[in-house]
C-alpha cells in the first residue's frame, strides 16, 4: 500500500509542477491591459491590450495589413495603428486583443499582432473534468486491487484445499 501512495504522490507533484509552469506561462504572455492602463502607464515594451474596436473608426487598407482604429475601454479610447499580417478578425464592435507598444511621440499604440479574446475558464474546466475523475477512478481501482490481494493473502485462500471427506456410512 505504501508503494501505491508513493507512486501517486510523485504523480501529483509532477502534475502540480506542470500546472504551475502553465499558469506562469499564461501570466507572462497572456495578461492583458485595458486602454485606460495604456494611457496612464504609457508602456514602451510590448504589451497586450484588450478592448472593443469602436464603431466608425476603422480605416486603412486591411488587405495589405495596414489599419487604424480606436480601441475602447470603459472610459478611454486608445488610438491604434496596426501594421502586420492582413487581419481576418478585425471588425468594428468586436472585442479583440492588440499586441504592440505605445509610441509617445505620435500618441498612438503601434500594434503588430491581433489576437482573439479567450475565456480560460473553458480550458481549465475541460482539463480538470477530463483528467481529475480519470485519475480518481484509476486510484480507486488500484487501491481496491491491493486490498483484494491483501485480503486473499491474509485469508490464506490460495492454500491448496484439503479433500473434504464426508463419511456416508
Amino acid at each position: 500500500m505504501t508503494g501505491l501512495y508513493l507512486r501517486w504522490s510523485a504523480l501529483v507533484i509532477v502534475a502540480v509542477v506542470i500546472a504551475a509552469l502553465t499558469f506562469q506561462d499564461f501570466e507572462q504572455h497572456l495578461t492583458s491591459l485595458t486602454p485606460e492602463d495604456v494611457v496612464s502607464l504609457q508602456p514602451t515594451r510590448v504589451v497586450r491590450v484588450i478592448g472593443l474596436v469602436k464603431g466608425g473608426t476603422l480605416g486603412g487598407d486591411l488587405e495589405s495589413g495596414h489599419a487604424s482604429f480606436e480601441l475602447a475601454g470603459r472610459q478611454e479610447a486608445l488610438p491604434v495603428e496596426y501594421n502586420g499580417p492582413p487581419p481576418e478578425n478585425l471588425r468594428e464592435l468586436k472585442t479583440l486583443v492588440v499586441i504592440g507598444a505605445w509610441d509617445s511621440s505620435s500618441g498612438t499604440f503601434l500594434a503588430h499582432e491581433l489576437a482573439l479574446v479567450t475565456n480560460y475558464g473553458y480550458v481549465v474546466g475541460a482539463y480538470l473534468i477530463g483528467l481529475l475523475p480519470l485519475a480518481l477512478f484509476l486510484f480507486g481501482m488500484e487501491r481496491k486491487v491491493v486490498l483484494l490481494y491483501r485480503e486473499i493473502k491474509e485469508s490464506k485462500l490460495y492454500e491448496p484445499e484439503t479433500p473434504h471427506h464426508v463419511d456416508t456410512r
Binding site: L30, N89, L116, V117, T118, N119, Y120, Y122, V123, Y127
Partner: peptide, 8 residues
C-alpha cells in the same frame, strides 16, 4: 481562429 481554446 480559435485562439487558446484549441488547447481543449
Amino acid at each position: 481562429y480559435q485562439g487558446e481554446v484549441v488547447r481543449i
